[in-house]
Computed example of a mutant assay.
Amino acid sequence: MIDVQRLRVLRAVAEHGSFNRAATALRLTPSAVSQHVAALERSLGTRVVERSTRGVTLTPAGHIMVGAAESVAAELTHARREVDRLGTGRTQFTVATFTSGGRLLLPGALARLTAAHPGTVVHVREAEPEEALRLVRQGAVDAAVAYHFDGPLPGEPGRRTPVEWTALLADPLHMVLPEAHPLAGRRALDIAELAEEPWVLGCLKTEAYLRRYADRAGFTPEVRGTTTDYFFACSLVAAGLGVSLIPSIALAPPPPGVRVVPVSPPGPARHIGVAVPRGRGDHPYVTTLVGALRDEAAAVRTIVPPCPVI
Rank of each mutant, 00 (worst) to 15 (best):
residue 1 M to Y: 07
residue 3 D to L: 04
residue 4 V to G: 07
residue 8 R to T: 14
residue 20 N to V: 15
residue 27 R to G: 03
residue 32 A to H: 15
residue 33 V to R: 14
residue 37 V to C: 12
residue 40 L to Y: 03
residue 40 L to E: 06
residue 48 V to R: 02
residue 49 V to L: 07
residue 53 T to Q: 11
residue 59 T to K: 00
residue 60 P to S: 10
residue 64 I to R: 02
residue 69 A to Y: 05
residue 69 A to F: 02
residue 76 L to A: 12
residue 78 H to L: 12
residue 81 R to Q: 13
residue 83 V to R: 09
residue 86 L to M: 12
residue 88 T to E: 00
residue 91 T to I: 08
residue 94 T to H: 04
residue 97 T to C: 15
residue 102 G to T: 09
residue 102 G to N: 05
residue 106 L to C: 13
residue 106 L to Y: 09
residue 107 P to F: 02
residue 112 R to N: 14
residue 121 V to N: 11
residue 126 E to T: 08
residue 128 E to V: 11
residue 139 G to R: 05
residue 143 A to E: 06
residue 148 H to Q: 03
residue 150 D to W: 02
residue 150 D to P: 02
residue 154 P to V: 11
residue 155 G to D: 15
residue 156 E to A: 13
residue 157 P to I: 11
residue 158 G to T: 13
residue 160 R to F: 15
residue 170 A to G: 10
residue 175 M to H: 06
residue 184 A to P: 13
residue 187 R to I: 15
residue 189 L to D: 06
residue 193 E to Y: 04
residue 195 A to S: 13
residue 198 P to M: 02
residue 200 V to Y: 03
residue 206 T to K: 01
residue 212 R to I: 02
residue 214 A to K: 12
residue 217 A to I: 10
residue 225 G to A: 08
residue 226 T to G: 13
residue 231 F to N: 01
residue 237 V to A: 11
residue 238 A to R: 03
residue 241 L to I: 07
residue 248 S to F: 08
residue 248 S to A: 10
residue 259 R to V: 14
residue 263 V to I: 14
residue 263 V to C: 01
residue 264 S to F: 09
residue 266 P to E: 12
residue 267 G to W: 04
residue 274 V to K: 00
residue 275 A to E: 08
residue 279 G to A: 03
residue 283 H to Y: 06
residue 284 P to I: 01
residue 291 G to E: 14
residue 292 A to L: 05
residue 298 A to D: 07
residue 301 R to I: 00
residue 308 P to E: 05
residue 309 V to M: 12
residue 310 I to S: 04
